[in-house]
Design a protein around this nucleic acid. Structure first.
Ligand SMILES: [Mn+2]
Ligand SMILES: [Mn+2]
Ligand SMILES: [Zn+2]
Ligand SMILES: [Zn+2]
Lengths: 139, 139
DNA sequence: TTTCTAGTTTAGAATTATTATAAACTATAT
DNA sequence: ATATAGTTTATAATAATTCTAAACTAGAAA
């Protein structure tokens, strides 16, 4: 895959979500999705890496806006785990996580690696939005 | 059970955790534990209710300090669920929760109501600290 | 191609939850 | 009673995030 091909792909992807393909969004797309493996990040880490040595600087506000827009559009998944910071995942398939309380890092657990053989019925009028398990680990 | 009996009990409980039985801590103990059912709260809701119409006002800083001290002492459990706010639980037994994204309220799920028939081994050198499930629900 | 406009980016201010600071207060050991 | 370590408190500081409003830009329409 050549980068210019991916760029076209991102332009389409963004347009299909009613998001204009700005250079900021495309740069963030490339950073997030031009790779073989999915990964986890926070706005803080993304901001640092995006603005390390690139040509254009992207403001923190735009990083926030874009991560939020990409999450709404379904390109990213938010992982609720820590009380202070939001984590995001480029792996949008349903799956579980280890959360290391020491290093504050997430590791994927494939969906099939956890079997819930008994799950309670939600209260009337409510339905289950998400059943992904976060297993907290430490040394 | 008479309140004065519970008060003595709280004094002992606090002393046994090397916490001086101040009038602030005792008032918070009474508010949290003088009831038949356990419940969930945030510092914000606790602060409002504690300082509604009581004789002594307790500062927000003391509410934070006390909730932290009680959690360390094992009188309370912290439930990590939302990205913005810490939730606490007077039910310190291991159990699971529904978290309603609309009302932002927690509901207990008895430990036996969820069966995990397959759980992955944690990475080497790490052990599982906590395996309580939060099921996110919505309308 | 120029013009227009809604959408986007940005710096900086505001907000929210929480933690830190340091002075005044108090439980309790001596 | 006194001393002292622990506690409370108002207030400041911090951290993550959201808001604001002005400047900028993609892309539709003229
Ligand atoms: Mn926040
Ligand atoms: Mn915070
Ligand atoms: Zn993941
Ligand atoms: Zn509970």
């Amino acid at each position: 895959m050549i980068i210019s091909d991916n760029l076209k792909m991102y332009v389409q992807k963004l347009r299909s979500s009613n998001l204009r393909p700005t250079k900021q969004r495309l740069k963030i797309c490339q950073f997030l999705f031009d790779r073989k493996k999915t990964f986890h990040f926070t706005v803080e880490t993304l901001n640092k890496k995006i603005n390390k040595n690139g040509a254009i600087k992207i403001s923190l506000a735009t990083i926030y806006n874009t991560v939020e827009a990409f999450t709404s559009a379904g390109y990213l998944k938010e992982i609720l785990t820590s009380k202070n910071k939001s984590y995001y995942d480029t792996n949008i398939k349903s799956h579980h996580h280890f959360y290391d309380e020491g290093s504050k890092e997430l590791t994927d657990i494939h969906y099939s690696q956890i079997k819930l053989s008994k799950v309670p019925v939600p209260p009337k009028g409510k339905k289950i939005k998400n059943l992904e398990v976060v297993i907290r680990i430490q040394k």
